[in-house]
């Protein structure tokens, strides 16, 4: 039986009217939404980690385990605002390696 938790890297782009969205605010907003939907137990097992975030370009990479990928994508679809700023998170791609994810981020 395979027990290894493989990582998945979600490349995203924030669409919003605001020029900048601070990394810390965005991170805490994702954690809060994850906990609202899937609870503390779900969020603790998701293995969330922010690999990369560019405040100016509003793009980034979030790491999670392969089992919690649908949950993370649901959370990103569920999010509508960050600190009263309306946002839309566009998923650009999902990759299995961080290098590929970074490559996608630079090319798109």
């Amino acid at each position: 039986m395979v027990t290894i938790k493989r990582d998945r890297y979600v490349v995203f782009h924030l669409i919003s009217d605001a020029e900048k969205i601070e990394e810390s605010i965005f991170k805490s907003s994702i954690w809060r939404t994850y906990q609202t939907i899937f609870g503390l137990y779900g969020s603790s097992g998701a293995g969330l980690y922010f690999e990369d975030y560019d405040e100016d370009k509003k793009t980034g990479i979030i790491r999670c385990t392969h089992t919690s990928l649908p949950q993370l994508l649901t959370v990103l679809a569920f999010m509508t605002e960050v600190k009263e700023t309306k946002i839309l998170i566009q998923i650009m791609n999902v990759s299995g390696t961080v290098n590929k994810a970074k490559q996608i981020l630079t090319t798109k």
Binding site: L73, A77, K86
Partner: peptide, 12 residues
């Protein structure tokens, strides 16, 4: 900003 892709709608 309330638009969602088909995949996102299915996840919701």
């Amino acid at each position: 900003l309330e638009l969602r892709t088909g995949s996102q709608m299915r996840l919701l």
